[in-house]
Each structure stands twice: as structure tokens, then as C-alpha cells.
Amino acid sequence: MDMDYEGPDADYLIDTTDIYEQTVYENIRVQNDEWEIIDESEAAPYLPDTTTKRKVTIGLQENRKEVPLSRFDSVLLDDYFELRKGHLLNTGGSIWGLDFVPKGPADKDDKTSSIQYLAVAGLRGTTDQEHFGLNTIQPTGTYKNAIQLWRLKLSTKQAPERARLDMCLLHDFGVICDLRWCPYGVFEDENVKRINIKTE
């Protein structure tokens, strides 16, 4: 059995060939004209408005350091721990849902195979904003929000990189209570994924 730093290689534990070759939602298609790219000033009402840097203490015992973390910034934990790997993200808001994009097994020569995407959503604010209950009805258009897509390089074989906010999907459907990517088999020619969103 092949092993690496992270443990057994999943390719050798489970045969996923038939799973990743399925197309589960073949009748759902994303159209380019359904999307619009806007500038930062137009996006502002949808994004967390905090400009305060968060102070985060990272490290163990005598090696602790206080690190300022701006909105949409990240810290690579590898820089603070000798044997630990990870990322610390400041989304600027309260997180209620997050999920990694499901990916099939990658070609061993593919240099982008270690790139993963994490969808993060919830409330735009944290403490200085009214919080919504799970049963609160929010009519469409009354609460602007965003789903943040963070790009992370997750590999023990390549040099680490800081996570970065790659894209925000803006919407006016309210607070997102949970989100999940649709299962495997929904990649299209343009590598578009679909996401299930639960709002209240």
C-alpha cells in the first residue's frame, strides 16, 4: 500500500472509477449570460464592510505571535508551526456554511491537482449586526450577501502558498444557513461546478 505524509493514498483504498465517471445532473446547465462581472464598488453592499484588522494569536507557549489579519486575508500556519499545516482565513463575516469542491482523482503529472476550492458563506457581519434565526423569513432582495470561493493549495509535496479569495458569488437571497456542492459528476467542459444553497 502506498503511503505519504498524509496517510494512505485514497486511490488505493477505494475504487472510485465508476463514481467519478458518472454525470449526476446532466440536465442542469449553467449559461454564461446568467453571470455578470461587476467592479468592487458595485459589489460593496454584498460584502462584509469591516475594515478592522483582527488580531490573532498563533503559536505554542513561548513562540506565540500576534498577527494582524485584514478582511479577505489569510495566514499560512506552516510559517508558525514546524509540523503543522493549514490556513487561517478572515472572511470578514460570521460563517454558517462551508464546503470543499469535490474533485475526482487527478493525473499525477497535473501541477494544479493540489489546488482546492472552499466555498464559505453566512452573515455579512459578525458582532455589530442583527443576527437572523433559522426560521426568519427573508424576502428576496432584502439582504444582500455573497458566497466566497477561496483557493487553497493543499499539498505536502509542493511549496506551500497562502490561501486567497478567488471569487465572490453575489446574491440577494439572504443569509446562507448551509451550503453543499452538488456531488461528483457535475464538471462540464468549462469546469463549472454547481452548488446547493440553503437560505431562510
Rank of each mutant, 00 (worst) to 15 (best):
A44C: 05
Y46Q: 09
I14E: 04
E21D: 09
Q129L: 11
I38R: 07
A44N: 06
L98T: 04
D109L: 15
Q61C: 14
N135R: 07
S41V: 06
K108I: 00
L77A: 02
L47F: 00
E130G: 12
D73I: 05
Y80Q: 09
D33P: 13
R54E: 04
T127A: 09
T51N: 10
Q22W: 01
Y117D: 00
Q116L: 09
Y143Q: 11
Y25P: 03
V56F: 06
D78V: 05
I28C: 03
H131A: 07
G59F: 00
I14N: 04
V101P: 04
N145Y: 07
N63L: 07
L60V: 14
D128Q: 09
E21W: 10
P68N: 01
P105E: 02
P139W: 01
N90L: 03
N27G: 09
I37Q: 06
K108Q: 05
R84W: 02
Y12P: 11
T23G: 15
L88W: 06
P48Y: 00
K55V: 12
G59P: 00
D49G: 15
Y20A: 15
G133W: 00
G104R: 02
A106V: 06
I19V: 03
H87D: 13
E130P: 07
T136M: 02
A119D: 00
Y80D: 05
D11Q: 01
D78M: 04
T51Y: 13
E36N: 11
D99E: 02
L60T: 13
T23D: 06
P8T: 07
T16I: 08
D107W: 08
L89D: 00
D39H: 02
T140L: 11
G133I: 00
I19A: 06
E36Q: 14
E82F: 03
V120F: 03
A44F: 01
A121K: 00
L13G: 14
D78F: 08
T51V: 04
P139E: 01
G141T: 04
D107G: 10
L69N: 05
D128G: 13
V24K: 05
S70D: 04
Q22Y: 04
T50Q: 10
D4V: 05
I19M: 07
E82H: 11
S94W: 08
Q61K: 15
L89S: 05
E26N: 12
L83G: 13
V30E: 10
R124H: 03
D49C: 14
K53Y: 08
H87C: 09
A106Y: 01
D15G: 08
S41D: 12
L77G: 14
T51S: 15
K103E: 10
